[in-house]
Computed example of a mutant assay.
Amino acid sequence: MVRHVVGVPELAMRAATVAGRLEALEADEAVWCLDQLIRGALWGDADAMEAMLAAAYWLVTVDVDADYGWITELFEAAYRAERASVVAMLRDAPPVRGLAAGRKLPEVRLPLEREITLGERRMMASERERKLLDRLLMDPSPLVIGKLLSNPQLRVRDVLVIAARRPTVPELVNEVACHPVWFRKVEVREALARNPFGPTGVALKILPTLPLKMLRQVAGSGELHELVQEAAGRLVRLREERTAPWRV
């Protein structure tokens, strides 16, 4: 499976390959494979790291409603087999922090003399003018942010503004997490995992793709959901125990 995945060029295609290979297996076999990918990535195997990234992206972008039965089967099989790292990847919970009831993110201020509609802001998100793009990074609409993320003028430091924004709403964090180009950037994944306003499930799925130093920081952050901190600590222990893949 790993060789098949790394032979595919794009992340979204790799994610589809992972999903297809896992869905062809029994749930307990698929869980074993996921557990081995986690261990292989922690161990530093380059191909396993790429396959783990694809698996994480698949889980982040999967249509939970459409695949609810299969995801539930995986979760139950992982729980029965006591594969805690896989259980964590398949869990979700509300963000540990959020906007106060009734509050919304502020509207973005643009350097224009009139009120700008949502449709106009989406069009502006495709333009090249730096002054507009810098303002739109703080737009509260997922539609605008989604358009902005595909703008070739955007840089990693711009995406980090969106990913690390506090306060924010889960929908904006999801836009970044579901973008295949930016999901590949480890600093972006770290910002997503360390944002207490973001979806807990996204953070849990990202953790196995992070290097050891980042995992230690997440585990000891003190501001993230306890599920995220516990999962990061577990991955750190797996790596420090040097539990090699394939033979476990």
Rank of each mutant, 00 (worst) to 15 (best):
P208R: 08
A191K: 04
R121F: 02
R114I: 05
G44D: 07
A125V: 14
Y79K: 15
R39N: 06
D92E: 14
K185W: 10
L238D: 02
P111L: 06
A163F: 05
V96P: 00
P211K: 08
P196T: 09
L110K: 11
K185V: 13
L22Q: 06
V18I: 15
A219P: 03
V236Y: 00
V176A: 05
E29N: 12
A100E: 15
L42W: 02
V2A: 03
R97Y: 08
L59C: 03
A27W: 12
V176C: 05
L224E: 00
C178H: 03
L227F: 10
L235Y: 01
F183D: 02
P180H: 05
G201C: 09
W43I: 05
T72W: 15
N195G: 11
L215A: 06
G40M: 03
I116C: 12
R14F: 05
N195V: 11
P140E: 11
P111H: 10
L59T: 00
G233C: 09
E226L: 08
E76T: 14
A16D: 11
V6N: 01
L118V: 07
H179T: 13
R242Q: 11
R128N: 12
G119H: 11
E240W: 04
L160C: 07
L112E: 12
A41T: 10
R39L: 12
D45G: 09
E230Y: 03
N195P: 09
A24S: 15
A101R: 15
W246A: 07
R242N: 10
A125H: 05
D63T: 11
P211H: 05
G198P: 04
L192D: 01
P208M: 14
H225D: 15
E223S: 14
L118G: 11
R39W: 01
A66C: 10
Y57A: 09
L37Y: 05
L59E: 00
D139A: 13
V64K: 13
I162S: 02
L210W: 00
E50P: 01
P111S: 10
R91D: 12
L90R: 09
V159M: 08
L34S: 04
V18E: 02
L90Q: 09
A163M: 06
G119M: 13
I162T: 07
A84W: 04
D45C: 11
P152T: 14
E115K: 10
G201R: 01
A100V: 11
A27Y: 12
L215Q: 02
V202Q: 02
L74N: 11
W246G: 04
A51V: 12
V218M: 03
G98V: 06
M89Y: 04
T17D: 05
P152M: 14
R166W: 10
D139C: 11
A232P: 01
L53K: 07
R157C: 10
E82P: 05
P170R: 02
V6S: 01
A30N: 13
E26H: 15
G20L: 07
D134F: 08
D134M: 13
L112I: 05
H225E: 09
V202F: 01
D28W: 08
E82V: 13
A177N: 06
L132T: 09
A56I: 03
T200M: 04
D65Y: 06
L74H: 13
D158E: 10
A51H: 14
V86N: 05
L25Q: 15
D67L: 01
E82S: 14
